[in-house]
Write a protein that binds this DNA or RNA. Sequence first.
DNA 1: CAGCATCCCCCCAGATACTG
DNA 2: CAGTATCTGGGGGGATGCTG
Lengths: 110, 110
Amino acid sequence: MKRHIYNCSEGCPVESTLQIISGKWKSVILYHLIRQEVCRFSELQKSMPNCSRRMLSLQLSELEQDKIISKKIYPVIPPKTEYRLTKLGKTLEPIIIEMEKWGRMYNSTH
Amino acid sequence: MKRHIYNCSEGCPVESTLQIISGKWKSVILYHLIRQEVCRFSELQKSMPNCSRRMLSLQLSELEQDKIISKKIYPVIPPKTEYRLTKLGKTLEPIIIEMEKWGRMYNSTH
DNA sequence: CAGCATCCCCCCAGATACTG
DNA sequence: CAGTATCTGGGGGGATGCTG
């Protein structure tokens, strides 16, 4: 619930961005939601084996609070939920794409 | 010293990038080193009032270990050091630029 | 000025168990 | 299946003091 507070008042725009995406797994979640527009909870879980269920849940709910992703709950048993990027969330794509590109480059040279 | 280990083996390139820049203040440091090519320790400190001296020092040394920044020490009294991006560090620019752009957009609409 | 060493507290996040 | 609730320990990070 509580997050680190960056001092955005000094006018470093990067800090505002960090406020939103600096959670340990958030950019990974965004990465998967870019590649696959709609994801279920269990699909994300499989894609991120090192992220516990609890952490995944927390990160998702913060992203939802910040209107970066939206959640659709189907009232069925067993439960079914779907996550996808909001319009605002989609504006984060360029950042994730650049991170992805850099990661590929880095992996191929190290 | 110890950092969170992302499981990059599964082929999510974003995790490789996080391994390098996910430190709490790293992208802010990079932001300042992009705007001002050469920075002294105290200059960075002034630019990041919410980051303690200890933390700044730790983050800088990790970035240096990862060859993202380089450090030049002048053997004078009082001490003087200068930090700048390495060639590898400069390849992170597109990510930081996108983060900066997004932060500005977000600030202007929220 | 640019750090490192130490102390110490708080809270993050893992493990586990439970539920609609 | 998709989460919550609770407990717990270890470490992240602040505060402070010291040094070349």
